[in-house]
Amino acid sequence: MKRRWENILISEIRKVVGGAKLRRGRGRIWIENEISPECEERLRWIFGIQSYSKCDHCKLQELEDRVLSFWNERVRDRSGFSFAVKVKRSGKHDFTSQEMAARIGGLILDHHPDLWVDLENPDYRIYIEIRDNDCYIFDEVIECAGGLPPGVEGEVVALFSGGVDSAVATWLMMHRGCKIIPVHFDLGAFSAHDGRMRAEKVTSFLKRYQRDLELLVISHGDFLSDIRRILSDAKIENHTCLLCKRRMYRVIEEIAVREGAKGIVTGESLGQVASQTLDNLFILDHAVKIPVFRPLIGLDKNRIEAMARAIGVYDVCTSMKDECLATPDKPTTKGNLQKILEVESNKDI
């Protein structure tokens, strides 16, 4: 499995770096050519890459000279500061990582006696990885998206409004190796604002993580008109949201079956709104036969919004508002499944 995941990750990296030479070894993927700053930036958004660093390479016997050269290139016109050397090694050597770090640190101090070592909170840190006879020197670790390589867990279909909840839920499933098919239900006249435009904007943002991400839009306004009329006649308008969501679930299930996807993803969080009580989530799940994944189920709104800010999608989601005008004044928090099934048996919907 690890080999397959690495192959997928290398394939994603190749899409970014083009003809650059790649090789792998012991948990590392090496790009052996110079790449543009634009390519470096795009590497940050590839799931499966925890971090990357730009390194200087040398042989073990050249390490001391190369460290001094690297230092002089990177640390110019600076004096009176603290530093630390961190060494990681693999292979057979007659020294430990700590011994080599002390040796290199002493070498730097010999050439720069105005400096001092601070292993806990240094002003500058230099890293050295020694792999058999090859050494890699760097001073920056650029954090990336992490997670699992794109698509290694298969496809899922996401119920995608473009709001904060659906965007974070989608990102989390991407982060764990799922390829996403986002589906947006266009409310038509029942959208107080242009919900479709917001969903398209958020999809465009998330494309940095899944390059082939394409929003699928389903017309939903006519269904809402019909269901509101039928529920009004039955005197159970408070079930509108449940009937609406169950229809969305069934449509998404059809898409999932057609595309070979393994489940549905939603941004639902337990108790956040009326349709997301435990009773009502049970009624929603009853509408489909495939798994429904809710990565936000145990999170409150504050934590979800904090995650959205950390991802960088919060401002995109909130730059355009949306509101469903079909929502009843007092939606039920404990739906009646039997009444719902009776309504759904109506041939007019």
Rank of each mutant, 00 (worst) to 15 (best):
R176M: 04
Q50Y: 12
A102H: 11
K207E: 11
R89V: 05
I340H: 03
G154I: 06
V87Q: 00
R176D: 02
H220G: 07
E253P: 06
V16N: 13
G48K: 05
F70W: 06
L119Y: 11
L299G: 05
E140M: 12
D300W: 00
D233Q: 15
Q338G: 11
G188A: 14
G91R: 11
C135W: 05
W171K: 07
K86M: 12
V217F: 06
M320L: 15
M1A: 13
G151A: 12
T266Y: 03
S225G: 12
A192K: 14
M100I: 09
S191Y: 06
V343H: 01
E305S: 13
F223I: 03
I31D: 00
G267E: 05
E259Q: 09
G221T: 03
L9G: 02
S345P: 03
G263L: 07
N336W: 03
K54S: 15
R198V: 09
L215E: 05
R23I: 04
D118G: 07
S269E: 04
W116N: 11
F205V: 10
H175P: 08
E214D: 10
S82C: 08
E259I: 08
F190C: 09
Y209F: 15
S90P: 03
I29P: 04
V17W: 04
E305F: 11
D322C: 06
E129F: 02
K330G: 05
E73R: 14
R78C: 09
G151Y: 02
P122D: 13
G105P: 01
A326R: 03
A84Y: 06
S269D: 01
H220D: 09
A199H: 03
S225I: 05
S219Y: 07
S225K: 15
E120L: 15
K235S: 15
L296K: 01
F70Q: 01
A102Y: 09
M307H: 11
E38Y: 10
M307P: 03
F190S: 04
K289T: 09
E38P: 10
I283R: 07
K289F: 14
I29D: 11
G147A: 10
V292F: 14
Q98D: 14
N238C: 09
S161Q: 00
V316T: 13
R309F: 13
T266C: 00
R42G: 04
V67W: 00
A308H: 00
L213D: 12
L9E: 02
W45H: 15
I252P: 05
G177V: 04
I255R: 12
I304A: 00
C58W: 02
D212A: 14
E62D: 15
S166V: 03
I180M: 08
D329I: 07
V17Y: 13
F47I: 11
G25Y: 06
A101I: 07
C55D: 09
R211L: 11
V202G: 00
M1W: 14
G260L: 10
I137T: 01
S53H: 10
Y124G: 03
